[in-house]
Deep mutational scan, measured.
Amino acid sequence: QNEKLANELKSLLDELNVNELATGSLNTYYKRTIKISGQKAMYALKSKDFKKMSEAKYQLQKIYNEIDEA
């Protein structure tokens, strides 16, 4: 289960640069939040902690959705 979550989180991290570029014309909230979420996700992957990875995955998905809707 950890392996599956780690792969999903890696996949979301692969999209980080594209989504970060998409924040160029948006409010600074999005820029700041996506950077923080990305850092948390990288830390969670290194720690291999299921709870941290779950939270990081949720945060990344949430900010990606917010950027898409903005």
Score class of each variant (00 low, 15 high):
Y64R: 08
E15L: 15
L12F: 02
Q39W: 11
I67V: 04
A22D: 04
F50V: 07
S54N: 09
D68I: 15
L21H: 07
N2G: 09
T33K: 14
T33A: 15
T28D: 14
G38S: 12
K10W: 06
Y43H: 13
L9T: 00
G38N: 04
K62W: 06
V18N: 11
E55T: 06
A44Q: 01
E15Y: 14
K40Q: 09
K51L: 10
S37H: 11
I63H: 01
Y30N: 02
N17E: 13
R32V: 12
I63E: 00
Q1H: 09
N17P: 13
N7R: 14
I67Q: 02
E3M: 10
K4W: 08
D49F: 02
T28Y: 13
A41F: 02
N17D: 10
I34N: 00
M53Y: 03
S47H: 05
E55W: 10
N27R: 08
T23G: 06
K35Q: 10
M42P: 00
Q39Y: 09
Y29G: 03
Q59V: 08
N19P: 04
G24S: 13
Y43Q: 15
L12A: 02
G24F: 08
Y58K: 12
G38E: 06
Q61L: 12
N27E: 07
K35V: 08
N27Q: 08
K57H: 05
Q61I: 13
K46Y: 08
L13D: 00
I67P: 01
E8I: 05
S47W: 05
D14K: 11
K35H: 07
Y64T: 04
E66P: 01
Q39V: 09
D68T: 14
S11Q: 12
R32C: 14
A22E: 04
L45T: 00
E8A: 06
K48H: 06
R32N: 09
Y64S: 04
N65F: 08
L5P: 00
Y58G: 06
T23D: 05
K4V: 09
Y64M: 12
N2V: 15
L26S: 03
L45R: 00
A56S: 04
N19G: 05
D68F: 15
K52R: 12
K62G: 03
L16E: 00
E8P: 00
E20W: 15
A70K: 07
L26G: 03
E66Y: 07
I36C: 10
N19Y: 15
K52Y: 05
K46Q: 12
N27V: 05
S25Y: 09
A6S: 06
Y43M: 14
I67S: 02
E8L: 05
N65Y: 10
K52A: 11
E20R: 10
L5K: 02
N7W: 11
L13F: 03
K35D: 04
Q59L: 14
S37L: 15
K48R: 14
S25E: 08
K62I: 05
Y30S: 03
N7E: 12
E20M: 15
N7C: 13
K4A: 10
E69I: 12
A41E: 01
Y58L: 11
K46S: 07
A44V: 02
K51V: 10
T23W: 10
A70Y: 08
L13Q: 00
Y58V: 10
A44C: 02
Q59K: 05
K10P: 00
L9G: 00
K57Q: 04
K52G: 04
L60C: 02
E20F: 15
K52N: 05
K62A: 06
I67K: 02
L16A: 02
N65D: 10
K4C: 08
N7H: 10
K4G: 06
N2S: 11
L12V: 02
E8D: 08
T23P: 04
M42Q: 09
E69P: 04
I63C: 03
